[in-house]
């Protein structure tokens, strides 16, 4: 039982981290960024390349270089996200919202198969592996590395939340989410703020990518697709656009999958998770923490 919960929370932490970027971008410009999962993939490969380049420099220490690589990767994927927004999304900001869906899917293909061209289709294996010293925590088998990863994820999420709720920058983001025209009138540089939101969201996805690479070991060019889908789901469960809600949504999805596997077996897991999700949404149509918006008067 406690093992099930731990499995779910651990997977859920990854979902949350990726979902946050989804949710932020969605909250601010109402864009389903289908390429977001591919930024996770990009992060994993960027980390892979850096670790490979660093090679023997760090010697036998693993955690410190990983943290350095993590930060560098976050910067790199953040910039990639900004570039993506600049090229594929910003020019279309006045167009019908679904037009952005096309460029998002286009960007997703371009990123995936661009990486396919660069790195090939064969999965790559991370040079640094977080092996496991297992602890027994309330009957669940937990490794120290898992704990560290979850702590990093939680720390990143808290930082983000503080940034969005407490800082000027965050206020600007929320203002744009509410009303971009009014925000502009109040002297907010909308484009710059949106760029920064993309930077933050993409950096988090990149961080999740490196962490997944270092923990699971295997990365490939399509690794972002499924998790992108799950992150979208998690963001919606939580109440899309709502940051604490998204974190909860990710964890909840992880738990649903863990228990679904246990009760119904692996092949019915996603049916269970989606089924519960649909039932849940019919009861609570705005997600866990989403506000009830009056839709138009």
């Amino acid at each position: 039982m406690s093992q099930l919960i731990w499995n779910g929370l651990f997977v859920g932490a990854f979902y949350s981290l990726v979902a946050l970027g989804y949710s932020m971008v969605y909250g601010i410009i109402k864009l389903l960024n289908f390429a977001h999962g591919d930024l996770y993939m990009l992060g994993a490969f960027a980390g892979f390349a850096m670790l490979g380049a660093a090679g023997g420099v760090f010697g036998s220490m693993t955690l410190l270089p990983l943290l350095v690589v993590l930060v560098l990767t976050m910067a790199a994927t953040g910039l990639a996200g900004v570039a993506l927004e600049r090229v594929a999304y910003r020019p279309l900001r006045g167009a019908p919202r679904l037009s952005l869906l096309i460029t998002a899917v286009g960007a997703s293909f371009a990123l995936e198969y661009g990486m396919h061209l660069v790195a090939g289709a064969d999965p790559r294996v991370y040079p640094v592996r977080l092996g496991g010293t297992t602890l027994d925590l309330l009957g669940a088998r937990v490794t120290v590395q898992q704990l560290v990863l979850v702590l990093i994820a939680v720390a990143l999420m808290i930082v983000l939340n503080v940034l969005v709720t407490r800082s000027r920058e965050g206020r600007a983001m929320r203002a744009i989410a509410l009303d971009p025209r009014a925000a502009r009138l109040m002297g907010i540089d909308v484009d710059a703020v949106i760029s920064r939101a993309f930077f933050l969201g993409s950096a988090l996805a990149g961080a999740a990518g490196v962490m997944a690479g270092a923990y699971y070991g295997k990365i490939d060019f399509l690794m972002g697709f499924l998790i992108g889908l799950k992150a979208f789901t998690a963001a919606v469960i939580g109440g899309i656009g709502n940051i604490p809600g998204t974190m909860l949504g990710g964890l909840l999805l992880g738990l649903l999958e863990s228990f679904g596997t246990y009760w119904l077996g692996g092949e019915w897991r996603d049916v269970f998770a989606f089924g519960v999700l649909i039932l849940f949404l019919t009861v609570r149509p705005t997600g866990l923490l989403g506000e009830r918006v009056t839709e138009r008067v």
């Binding site: 286009g106 960007a107 997703s108 293909f109 198969y113």
Partner: peptide, 9 residues
């Protein structure tokens, strides 16, 4: 698919 994606954009 790379070209396909770029063309879509």
């Amino acid at each position: 698919y790379f070209v396909f994606g770029v063309l879509l954009i």
